[in-house]
């Protein structure tokens, strides 16, 4: 029995479409490209990224598939010197392939807007809720603009559980806690809403927590902020992501997300030691140890900054 070719084409297209959708949906959820999620913000960003990966996989397979199919199917036969059909376009088709990408980016745009809002990116109070008086910095701080991630819409009336001043300098981060001590590494209690007020002493830096999916530049003369909630115990890298000099790659410290008890104990210990040089907590990753002199991230150097 001879099946009409139109029906064969239709069935093939249908099967290909279903397979394509399944592969895209599967890969969008199982790409395994992201590091662990350690904050509420990370979960939101990953949901967005998975959606974009699903669309990306589908689009990639459709376009590359069509390209390879065309190359195989419409290859010029040896000896065929004729032209192809004089088709100059197809308005409905062109409208379709204008409308579909437009709708797709509209959906991605709305989703992104929503995620950004949930992360506190549009917090209207972020610009006003922390007057700045900074004596360590060599530059006058501008008090009118603060940018970064503020409170999520649900938390906008509430002060953060913990506020820490962060300073970026070549090539270290310092963290000044509310009780006054300075640390070279960041400790946060799990599940508590934390706010970092970020400054830079010399050049631009960027405060990046890959497992938290958040980043904010540290800009001399300005205060920027990141407000977020750690959700997972553990030790995570704090990375400088904005080129800041020769040892930019070594400007890495650690974030310890601890239980409230462990955090309190650590804090009490720091207060008791009063920031004496030997006790300033600096624990560079093993691979950075050989460069600790070049990068200036030693306990003595950081303690000295504190006593300016």
């Amino acid at each position: 029995m001879k099946i009409p070719s139109r029906i064969t084409t239709l069935i093939t297209t249908l099967i290909a479409g279903v397979l394509l959708a399944m592969v895209s949906l599967w890969y969008g959820q199982n790409h395994g490209l992201m590091p662990v999620e350690a904050s509420q913000e990370a979960a939101a960003v990953d949901g967005l990224f998975n959606m974009m990966m699903t669309i990306a996989t589908g689009l990639f397979l459709i376009v590359e598939g069509a390209l390879v199919f065309a190359i195989v199917r419409f290859r010029r036969k040896p000896g065929d010197n004729t032209d192809g059909p004089p088709i100059n376009g197809n308005v409905p088709l062109e409208i379709l392939w204008t409308a579909i990408p437009a709708l797709t980016v509209l959906v991605i745009g709305i989703y992104s807007f929503e995620v950004y809002n949930q992360m506190g990116g549009l917090d209207p109070m972020a610009a006003h809720d922390h007057p700045v008086a900074d004596h360590n910095s060599m530059v006058a701080m501008r008090e009118d603009v603060a940018v970064g991630l503020g409170a999520s819409p649900a938390e906008q009336d509430k002060a953060p559980n913990l506020t820490i001043d962060v300073m970026g300098l070549q090539y270290a981060w310092t963290f000044t806690y509310p009780s006054g001590f300075v640390s070279g590494e960041l400790h946060l209690p799990v599940g508590q809403d934390a706010q970092l007020n970020i400054k830079a002493q010399d050049v631009l830096h960027a405060f990046w927590l890959p497992e938290f999916r958040i980043k904010q530049d540290a800009i001399p003369g300005r205060v920027t902020e990141l407000r977020f909630t750690p959700t997972r115990l553990g030790q995570y890298p704090v990375i400088c992501a904005e080129l800041c000099g020769a040892y930019h790659g070594a400007m890495v410290t650690q974030l310890f997300v601890q239980s409230q008890e462990d955090f309190d104990a650590w804090q009490a210990q720091q207060v008791a030691q009063g920031g004496a040089p030997a006790q300033v907590a600096v624990q560079p990753s093993e691979y950075l140890a050989p460069y600790s002199q070049e990068i200036g991230a030693t306990a003595e150097a950081i303690a000295k900054l504190h006593h300016h």
Partner: peptide, 15 residues
């Protein structure tokens, strides 16, 4: 299009 999305770009910018 992915890096155009600001919340995702907060993660991947300068990487």
């Amino acid at each position: 299009v992915m890096v155009a999305s600001a919340p995702f770009d907060l993660h991947v910018h300068d990487t």
